[in-house]
Simulated scan of single mutants.
Amino acid sequence: MNQPLAYVHPGAKIAKNVVIEPFTTIHNNVEIGEGTWIGSNVTIMEGARIGKNCTIFPGAVISAIPQDLKFSGEETLAIIGDNTTIRECVTVNRGTVASGKTVVGSDCLIMAYAHIAHDCEVGHHVVIANACALAGHVTVGNYAIIGGLTAIHQFITIGEHAMISGGSLVRKDVPPYTKAAKEPLSYVGINSVGLRRRGFSTEKIREIQNIYRLLYQKNYNTTQALSLIEADLEATPERDEIILFIRNSSRGVMKGYTGAY
């Protein structure tokens, strides 16, 4: 690999067929998989582990140290899966001693100017739109879509297949399969369009709607609603995933929309 206008540290492990454009800097202790394209003026710092066939656009900074005053130089990682696209000026910080790594899964699209902080775990097939900011220790489930300019508080969990409106402030966990909008962020339905696109049947979508109807639209408190769901609705992977998500939420889940500001 001959890149006379790029700097690649001799200790970096670069697979075959990787394209590194001019004026990019790749530090020591970096691994990059086959077929990845790295645009000009990208900085990839120590601890980066980038998969196969990724596309990283100009100005991105991958695996910079955490913006955490407790960080004391420990060796940690920033891991990016295969087939993921990282657009212009995205920043992905590496982990802290808390988990040792920040992870972005495979087949993701991280749009321009997004920030993914230390110890985040982003699943597969996730879309994070322009200028989103994920604070530390955020977990994002597979197939979630986060609208542009959204800010997510630390330690938040976003469930699988959830969709969050652009410009949102996310202070509570967002359960799987839901749409979240308004201020304060609230349940506004399930992500039925996204679920259909991913092959969920009409019956399965109706089942998920019935679960959230009990949780959000029948004036039960959370404990009552979960008890009714377990007693009255057939056990399925989706039902059990929703119940487990809500019971394991440490910050609490978003509320139903009341129309009040």
Results as ranks from 00 to 15, higher is better:
Asn2Ile: 13
Gln3Ala: 13
Gln3Cys: 11
Leu5Ser: 04
Ile20Met: 12
Glu21Arg: 15
Pro22Lys: 04
Thr24Pro: 04
Asn29Pro: 10
Val30Ala: 09
Ile32Phe: 15
Gly35Lys: 14
Trp37Ala: 08
Ser40Trp: 14
Ser40Val: 08
Thr43Gly: 15
Glu46Gly: 06
Gly51Ala: 04
Gly59Asn: 14
Val61Gln: 13
Ile65Leu: 08
Ile65Cys: 07
Pro66Lys: 01
Gln67Phe: 02
Lys70Val: 02
Phe71Cys: 02
Asp82Gly: 00
Thr85Ala: 13
Cys89Tyr: 15
Thr91Ser: 12
Asn93Trp: 14
Thr96Val: 07
Gly105Thr: 00
Gly105His: 00
Leu109Ser: 03
Leu109Ile: 06
Ile110Thr: 02
Ala114Arg: 04
Ile116Lys: 02
Asp119Ala: 10
Asp119Thr: 09
Cys120Leu: 07
Cys120Val: 06
Ala129Gly: 07
Cys132Val: 11
Leu134Lys: 10
Gly136Ile: 10
Thr139Met: 12
Tyr143Glu: 01
Tyr143Thr: 00
Thr150Ser: 03
Ile152His: 02
Gln154Ser: 06
Thr157Asn: 09
Ser165Lys: 08
Gly167Cys: 03
Gly167Asp: 06
Ser168Trp: 04
Ser168Thr: 02
Val170Asp: 00
Val174Thr: 04
Pro176Met: 07
Pro176Tyr: 07
Ala180Ile: 10
Glu183Pro: 09
Tyr187Arg: 08
Val188Gln: 14
Gly189Thr: 09
Val193Thr: 11
Val193Cys: 10
Gly194Phe: 02
Arg196Met: 08
Gly199Ala: 03
Phe200His: 05
Phe200Tyr: 12
Phe200Lys: 05
Phe200Thr: 06
Thr202Val: 12
Glu203Trp: 04
Lys204Ser: 10
Lys204Asn: 11
Arg206Trp: 13
Ile208Lys: 04
Gln209His: 12
Leu215His: 05
Asn219Met: 12
Asn219Gln: 15
Asn219Glu: 15
Tyr220Asn: 15
Thr223Ala: 15
Ser227Trp: 06
Ser227Leu: 09
Ser227Gln: 13
Leu228Met: 07
Ala231Trp: 05
Glu234Asp: 09
Arg239Thr: 00
Ile242Thr: 07
Arg251Asn: 05
Arg251Tyr: 01
Val253Ala: 08
Gly256Gln: 08
Tyr257Pro: 07
Tyr257Asn: 12
Gly259Trp: 03
Ala260Met: 12
Tyr261Trp: 14
Tyr261Cys: 11
